[in-house]
């Protein structure tokens, strides 16, 4: 992979980020509601004072100039102040982000651990009983909405069996191994909900990708050289078949973030997803804007990483 490809790919990400910031800012600017609406009804504030305040804060400037100011402030890390939480938005998000990334990362790992073996096995014996069962289960998996599976798991494992806690706690009292054990216990359900939903749609991609590769000539060559079937599949087929899957995982990310918001809400995980919901319910506009932008930026960052990995795995792409 050439350095040129890396640089070009990183440069493509910048217009996308700018595009998203324009979309978000336009939405905010088009939205009805005036931050000064409370002052209008307040008889103690004369109209001239209100006008002066507006002019001073730049609310009467043309929209592009307001956008540039906003962008400049965002770039300097000045993301505003959360009135509901009484702290800077950037601090708030930095506190919440690790929990979200941990849950999403673990869920992606689980999804791959389930989807890759099942998809490969299904593709090696297409239209067999196993393939049909895997296909049906995949359909069931991505037709079950995350909020329903979450509630079902709580119903079975927390209410009926009383094995797992259904409220995620960040202030675990235990230390050492006991802390890890508690952490695993409270993460199992959210990670499973998100990971299995994700894995279900991944299975079909893996299967079709393996089916595309398994028919190629070099696989037949490997077989005719007398290499065992298991080795052919593992070393020759799967390695190449998984390359497009990298991109598909990245393309699925917007959906994963949606699922993360729901799971965080159900299991009360203090991540940025539940922060978004809480901010919406509390009318905390700076936080709502910032969290939406962080989600969008994360999608672009991971897409860029996936593209770079793709270029590294498949050098043909990098030279195009």
């Amino acid at each position: 992979m050439s350095r040129q490809f890396l640089l070009r790919r990183l440069l493509i990400a910048i217009p996308s980020l700018l595009g998203i910031s324009v979309v978000l800012f336009t939405v905010l600017a088009l939205a009805p509601g005036d931050p000064f609406s409370e002052l209008v009804t307040n008889p103690n504030v004369p109209a001239e004072v209100r006008m002066a305040l507006r002019a001073e804060l730049g609310l009467d400037d043309p929209i592009w100039s307001r956008y540039l100011h906003w962008l400049w402030a965002m770039l300097h890390g000045n993301w505003g102040f959360s009135f509901a939480s009484r702290m800077n938005v950037s601090t708030l998000i930095m506190q919440r982000l690790p929990a979200t990334l941990a849950v999403i990362g673990a869920a992606q790992l689980l999804a791959m651990l389930v989807a890759i073996p099942v998809g490969v096995l299904a593709a090696t014996k297409p239209y067999s009983i196993f393939d049909q069962m895997a296909n049906t289960m995949a359909f069931v998996g991505f037709s079950l909405p995350t909020f329903f599976t979450g509630l079902l798991l709580i119903l079975v494992f927390s209410v009926q069996l009383d094995w797992l806690p259904f409220v995620y706690s960040t202030t675990l009292r235990a230390t050492g191994w006991a802390w890890w054990w508690e952490q695993v216990k409270q993460s199992i359900m959210p990670v499973c909900v998100l990971g299995l939903f994700q894995g279900a749609s991944l299975v079909r991609y893996v299967r079709s990708s393996v089916l595309d590769v398994i028919k190629l000539d070099y696989v037949t060559t490997a077989r005719s050289k007398g290499i065992g079937e298991g080795k052919v599949i593992r070393l020759h087929v799967v390695r190449n078949a998984l390359i497009p899957v990298v991109t598909l995982i990245a393309l699925q990310l917007p959906v994963v973030f949606g699922g993360a918001i729901v799971t965080e809400q159900i299991f009360r995980i203090p991540g940025i997803g539940s922060l978004l919901i809480a901010a919406i319910l509390a009318n905390d506009t700076p936080v709502v804007m910032a969290v939406t932008f962080v989600f969008a930026a994360l999608v672009i960052i991971f897409n860029t990483i996936a593209d770079i990995i793709y270029g590294w795995l498949d050098p043909r792409i990098a030279f195009r």
Partner: peptide, 17 residues
């Protein structure tokens, strides 16, 4: 660009506004 927008957060933002 629209494909890389996270749908649910944006949906929530639009409904909020």
């Amino acid at each position: 660009l629209f494909l890389s927008l996270p749908q649910l957060p944006l949906l929530l933002l639009l409904i909020y506004l």
